[in-house]
Design a binder for these strands. Structure first.
Length: 491
RNA sequence: GGUUCCUUGGCCGAGUGGCUAGGCAGCGGUCUGCAAAACCGCGUACGGCGGUUCGAAUCCGCCAGGAACCUCCA
């Protein structure tokens, strides 16, 4: 392993050296999507962040089991409205679909988006609806251990009682007294002993269509239970890393800890990692705030706030150019900057393949490599790693221009390094263009036009040469005269 | 109101005590029939006011502005 990895642990609020529970193996759990609508830009962040972690751990030689859940039983939409419906049930009513049809539709959409973003599929993608029995078992364990109570067919976690033996709020830095005085009183909480108690099992109201039988009532599992249950099932009572968005720290992850401790007697997670939010005009992008742009809209450019379409790799690169614990602000300008930067980086990768070695090097490949991995090992500092990569771009271009030299062995090392970091770890990829061979007819026609223009130029017939170039440009095809011939691309 | 955090050059975004990232835009140049692209070169910024220090964007205090969580949320 090249470097010792340090990661920021939300529990301790500092960077800690990462040491897995079992030598050479890592258990990783990340809160996945609730599949009731199309994913937006904000959802891309945790998936890309933890994809980077997954890829880097794998690169370092760990055998990683990455579990990312699919929430398909629905959380409560809004308790204050006393609707008792969950998100998925509500949407299903609106669209006249079966709840599981809605789940499938948006699950497919999510998977498609992730493939576009080159996010690797996790090792296991468990669905909450497939673990109802296990969730009921955990509810019973918590009841048996005396940290929950039944009320009108629902089961609630007894936070006060839990707090007497353990401490509630260790992750988010809260204490129960503060929560008591500051928790807003919501309607429909008369069943609970305290407003901050949370549901483990919820009795379904008559209009609630997603429901399962249980000894307490026909109902559905509480908001936070599935993650405790599925992480335990697939990673064990204790595992290495749990990730998710910062907005899940409280109450979701706090409740998860309480559930694990209440049922198993000890904390499950050793390192908690939280990614920050994507903002738009300085405010968090969120479905509930209505200021979101879906990934589909970004890829197609069809949204009032978008000046153009942005490719999946541009989105990925944009996200990787900020550290995962910082907010990152969306704007067309920022995205366009990422697009240009990525183009330059990928162009240099191509150039790298064309370099010829010299008998010795005037460049320091080893140092570049070391700095890059050091950055990634420092709590996944991808922006720094990318900055060093741009130093590499300069190195590659200078070699190409004849200003620097590289030995055959250094060249091999540099190629391997770029393969490792750009493709394997950062997960970038070449995006398909029309000239990549999937459209033979167009490629043939372009060759013809390029040859006609070449002949016109040879005859100093600039009018014809420029007409070909300008007219192609008008229909969205860009010609580039390079030293090595004419290149074309769809714009 | 409580808890936590942020404020960096035109824009995005790193950086936790001295060596003063990176990208985009801009400017100058090379190349080119012209243009675009590409390449090379150029930017001493760190909210305000105090303090600690030989030295602070970086530590401490106050002030101003903003955000997240406290309710579903990535």
């Amino acid at each position: 392993m090249e470097n010792q990895l340090f990661i920021y642990n939300t529990l301790s609020r500092k960077k800690e050296e990462f040491k897995p529970l079992v030598e050479g193996k890592v258990g990783l759990y990340v809160c996945g999507p609730t599949v009731y609508s199309d994913s937006h830009l904000g959802h891309a962040r945790p998936n890309i962040t933890f994809d980077l972690l997954f890829r880097y751990l794998t690169f370092l030689g760990y055998k990683v089991r990455y579990v990312r859940n699919i929430t398909d039983v629905g959380h409560l939409e809004n308790e204050a409205e006393e609707s008792g419906e969950d998100k998925i049930g509500k949407k299903a009513r609106l669209e006249q679909l079966e709840p599981m049809e809605v789940v499938q539709k948006y699950l497919n959409s999510f998977v498609h988006n992730m493939e576009n973003l080159n996010v690797l599929p996790p090792s296991i993608e468990p669905r909450a609806s497939g673990h109802i029995i296990e969730q009921q078992q955990m509810v019973q364990e918590i009841l048996d251990n005396g940290f929950a109570y039944e009320s009108k067919g629902s089961v609630y976690f007894d936070v006060e009682k839990y707090n007497q033996k353990y401490k509630y709020g260790i992750l988010s830095g809260r204490n129960l007294d503060d929560i008591k005085t500051n928790t807003r009183e919501l309607d429909g909480q008369s069943e609970k002993k305290n407003s901050f108690d949370f549901a483990l099992w919820k009795k379904a109201s008559p209009e609630h269509i997603m429901r399962w039988p249980s000894k307490w009532s026909e109902g559905f599992p509480g908001w936070h239970l599935e993650c405790s249950v599925m992480s335990t099932k697939y990673l064990g009572e204790q595992f290495d890393i749990h990730g998710g968005g910062m907005d899940l720290t409280f109450p979701h992850h706090e409740c998860e800890i309480a559930q694990n401790v209440a049922s198993n007697g000890r904390e499950a997670v050793r390192y908690w990692m939280h990614n920050n939010m994507i903002t738009i005009n300085g405010q968090k992008m969120a479905r509930s705030l209505g200021n979101f742009i879906t990934l589909k809209e970004l890829f197609s450019g069809k949204h009032a706030m978008l000046q153009q379409a942005y490719s999946p790799m541009t989105i990925r690169f944009f996200i990787l150019q900020a550290h995962y614990r910082s907010t990152i602000d969306f704007s067309n300008e920022a995205l366009q900057a990422s697009e240009k930067g990525l183009e330059r980086l990928m162009a240099s990768v191509k150039t790298l393949g064309e370099l010829s070695p010299s008998d010795q090097s005037t460049v320091d490949v080893a140092s570049l490599k070391e700095k890059c991995f050091a950055a990634l090992s420092d709590d996944l500092n991808s922006p720094i790693a990318i900055a060093h990569l741009f130093d590499g771009v300069k190195m590659i271009n200078s070699i190409k221009a004849g200003n620097e030299k590289i030995s055959a062995s250094d060249l091999e090392e540099l190629k391997t390094f770029y393969q490792n970091i750009v493709f394997d770890v950062l997960g970038l990829k070449e995006e398909e263009t029309a000239d990549s061979g999937d459209n033979q007819a167009l490629a043939g026609a372009m060759e013809l036009l390029i040859n006609l223009r070449r002949d016109a130029k040879a005859n100093k017939d600039w009018a014809t040469a420029d007409k070909i170039r300008d007219d192609l440009s008008a229909i969205g095809i860009e010609l580039k005269d390079t030293k090595d011939g004419v290149e074309w691309s769809l714009k």
